[in-house]
Design a protein around this nucleic acid. Structure first.
Lengths: 262, 262
DNA sequence: CTTGCCCACTCGTCTATACGAGTATGCATG
DNA sequence: CATGCATACTCGTATAGACGAGTGGGCAAG
């Protein structure tokens, strides 16, 4: 247990009314911000800090837990506490559903990830008929049952997004949309072939902390929120033909929209 | 210290390899999800749970800290731990900058909040010239200095959003845009009067955990992420005439966009 | 050289205790 | 009745100790 390089971290201010564990967290945070520790670097161990500050181990752990909650660091059992690297982000532009992007055979996700040089995967594919939730039913116009298409998207082995599409049975049942592989251009291409020419989409965006289930399927580190996006697709007759419910790891995404000023 | 109503919470499973504090958190979470506790309800005190489960206080506190991290509950010193109420959300539609909304005298925020029956406020108004950050400079096209307009928005006394607009000095200096009150229709109306007819906006959206400073200015409860929105306004000549950097309390907002399918 | 074990170091979980500080309530005092 | 204090309850902070479990390096045996 080598002593901490002096000057790396300061001393505590016993006269301060700021709690000791907060002071320690502040100093670590500042050291990270100032670049004393870089992404992926190992922070001093709990034992190091116990010795350096002369406090008990629980106090140090308390400090770490603050930084974890902020998403700044993550602990690895048996190894140490590390500065959390910012993962590469995926940019979603608002024209990502434009018809011209729908021509080729591969899905938008695959094409885009390949172009960005990362390795895309889709798994947990599940297609089945089920009872519509209240919310989905309201959005699709009072349908009882729907076709649900679930899938998880991964980039370089890391899950980044979990999405479920809901479609009214009278549209989707018996079509290729009900097959695991919906064919080139995805379900939007199939919908248009079926006569539902798409007119516009509505997207609702929320951000919140993940549920335990979401932590699991997206393998989220603590302190990482999710972006919850609900998209409704409307055809030219004004009918809602699909609702897509997407939960994204917030640290992996930047959403981008272009709005007319008219 | 009245005993806990039996049946409200279950027992621990000593054979489970799930940590005790997680089991307790699970049971509390489930009880909340099932509606055994409603928004604003007080959960059993730490002492109650210590007695009920026969564990130490730190273990119970550990459970609570999980739920706090999820944004499910919040603790009040001297009172207890409560189920966090879902605050009313503000919906931001993608047409909120349409020209027709810019006619009246009051700001969009005030009009909209009044209509929703809540009491809007704007404070911390600050207008000054300053050095442009790298990011802002890049977005505005390599300007050195900018006019910055900072303000905080509150609904019913609660801060919900903190925004800063940056404008190139050659556009804003000496105009009403540089005054604390930009006049009816806001700075977008002034920009158009100055000959910068607006063509479109670009919005970039991220979600992340707040910095300590953001926790303070937005008075955020723990477990509440922020939505970080960066909007760039372009005039008909393709020039970026304003960058607006907005940090919103994520539990107070739903963003809504409408996209053409073309 | 390879295999396998031991050991040191790491964080994870849990107990027990202590005192501080904010809140609410009831009771005694004025 | 009103004021103010005592008190009990709440969570906040901190200490000290114990054992468990994952990781990785070194060393000894094969």
């Amino acid at each position: 247990m080598s002593p901490l390089p002096s000057g790396l971290l300061g001393d505590l201010d016993p006269t301060s009314d700021r709690a000791v564990f907060r002071q320690i967290a502040d100093q670590l945070r500042e050291a990270i911000d100032r670049g004393r520790f870089h992404e992926g670097d190992k922070l001093p161990s709990e034992a190091d800090l116990v010795e350096h500050y002369g406090v008990s181990r629980m106090t140090v752990r308390n400090s770490f837990s603050i930084l974890q909650g902020e998403g700044l660091v993550h602990a690895e059992h048996g190894k140490g506490v590390f500065v959390r690297p910012r993962p590469p982000v995926r940019r979603l532009a608002s024209d990502r559903f434009a018809r011209r992007h729908r021509e080729q055979g591969k899905s938008a996700f695959i094409v885009e990830a390949d172009a960005a040089g990362s390795h895309p995967q889709v798994d947990s594919l599940e297609v089945k008929e089920e009872k519509a939730s209240t919310d989905v039913s309201a959005r699709l116009g009072s349908v009882r049952r729907v076709l649900a298409r679930r899938r998880r998207y991964l980039l370089d082995g890391r899950p980044v997004e979990f999405a479920t599409s809901y479609l009214p049975l009278d549209i989707a049942r018996g079509t290729q949309i009900a097959e695991p592989n919906p064919g080139p251009g995805g379900i939007y291409a199939r919908l248009e072939e079926l006569g539902h020419r798409l007119n516009h989409f509505e997207e609702e965006i929320r951000a919140r902390m993940p549920s335990p289930a979401e932590v699991k399927t997206l393998r989220l580190a603590s302190g990482v929120p999710v972006i919850h996006l609900i998209r409704t697709a409307f055809d030219t007759e004004g009918r809602a033909v699909e609702v897509c419910d997407t939960v994204m790891a917030a640290d992996a995404y930047v959403l981008s929209y272009q709005l007319p000023a008219t």
